[in-house]
Design a protein around this nucleic acid. Structure first.
Lengths: 230, 230
DNA sequence: CTACTTTCAAAAGTAATACTATCTTTGGTG
DNA sequence: CACCAAAGATAGTATTACTTTTGAAAGTAG
């Protein structure tokens, strides 16, 4: 018997909770696969419905439009990452150690098998790397931010910035460093594959440890641990 | 008599060079304004043509599709930024000073009035901040990268990484730092306006100096100038 | 001055996208 | 067995993302 985790996501994201039904879970599952395959621009609910063996109209019963499905998937991912961050840093006192674990977690090297069977974590990670920025780069950011669509991401960044502030309370930019690490985790994974001139790291067969090292180097290069300051 | 700068951009980006004709220049000019106004997703060639007082079909004679128009605008912006970087750092020997100037330039605080009358630099900057990532986050990145669409951006990053390497030849991630600074310049300008929890800086009435300070702090926090190393 | 070419607006058409509405079937619950 | 929500089937609309054809205007070459 395994633990079954039910994600509690902002209910303004969907019309009907996709986690409740077979079709809903298929929308999530094959939505991820199809976006990964053809890219978000070419992705349509019609194509998704065909893939699932359902109809466009049925998909529209769950999500208002494809943008909100993307935001839902991103929320799902960040919620899951936040859970892993809590899990992985549990009972660790040393903030430096915590930051290392946080970095490994956001880069995706400290993953564990999800018990959530209808989501392929690795492919969702690819989608987040490739399409993640599109979630909040839209004319509706402010409204969607008000509706709390980005609160998980912000709280993840907030947790990391708290660790940063524990390490070096004098550091002036804990939030900026946290969000930069989160962005770098995505960007340099993408750059390594598509625009290698923009980075110094390599990703070979999904091996992300160089990204992890890069982020560790940046983070600890900027922070002066508290004990050294006395 | 003013100097007139003609941008030489990759000719695979367009079907007909928009700089050559009145209509072409209008496409650029009002394209920027309209994308800024309604966002890239809602932007269409039909709406643009209406705005200009032309037709959809005529716009299609210049650009294959709106994605390539966006990439064209981004190239234009990076080409101009590269020119400013060269201009602003000319005759400066000290690499630390050069990096400060580079940061001011990419953040947009070291701008000068363009002599290119059909482009509003400030609005283009807003478009780059809001939509810039969409230029290379698409399924066609690899093909477009091969066609050289991102070479200006890469060479801008390359120039900055050269300065970084001059300051601290021992630093292991000059390219990553350069591209991170470029991304941060955009991201934190956007965050300050729309997702302030993700940064520590404020942007008030277009005043970007806090972003500049942030980048200076990150860059020089990571680099150990050569003379100090002996 | 005519003939030829280029430029671009006008108009029309097509296929796909982004939805909405309605009606019927189905599978589980009380 | 009756009921009800889920979702399948079908149809329809407006907009988007284009392409094609045509013709007028304007420049250019002989």
């Amino acid at each position: 018997m395994a633990i079954r985790i039910q994600m509690k996501l902002n209910d303004k994201l969907y019309l009907r909770d996709p986690q409740d039904t077979k079709l809903g879970r298929n929308i999530i599952r094959y939505g991820i696969l199809l976006i990964d395959e053809i890219g978000f621009e070419a992705f349509t609910f019609k194509k998704l419905a065909e893939r699932i063996g359902s109809t466009e109209a049925s998909v529209y019963r769950y999500f208002e439009n494809k943008h909100l499905l993307l935001v839902y998937l991103l929320c799902w991912y960040w919620e899951w990452t936040k859970f892993l961050l809590d899990f992985n840093t549990n009972n660790i006192a040393d903030p430096c150690k915590k930051l290392r674990i946080a970095i490994a977690t956001i880069v995706n090297t400290a993953r564990r098998n999800a018990t959530i069977d209808f989501v392929d974590e690795d492919i969702l990670h690819r989608v987040v790397v490739a399409e993640g920025d599109k979630g909040y780069h839209s004319k509706s950011v402010d409204k969607e931010n008000q509706d709390g669509f980005f609160s998980t991401y912000k709280s993840l960044a907030g947790q990391i910035s708290t660790i940063i502030a524990e390490i070096d309370p004098a550091f002036a930019y804990p939030r900026a460093l946290a969000s930069t690490l989160l962005e770098m985790a995505k960007d340099h994974t993408y750059f390594a594959e598509h625009l290698p001139k923009l980075t110094d790291v390599k990703v070979e067969n999904g091996e992300l440890h160089e990204i992890e090292e890069l982020l560790v180097n940046f983070a600890f290069g900027l922070l002066k641990p508290q004990e050294l300051q006395k």
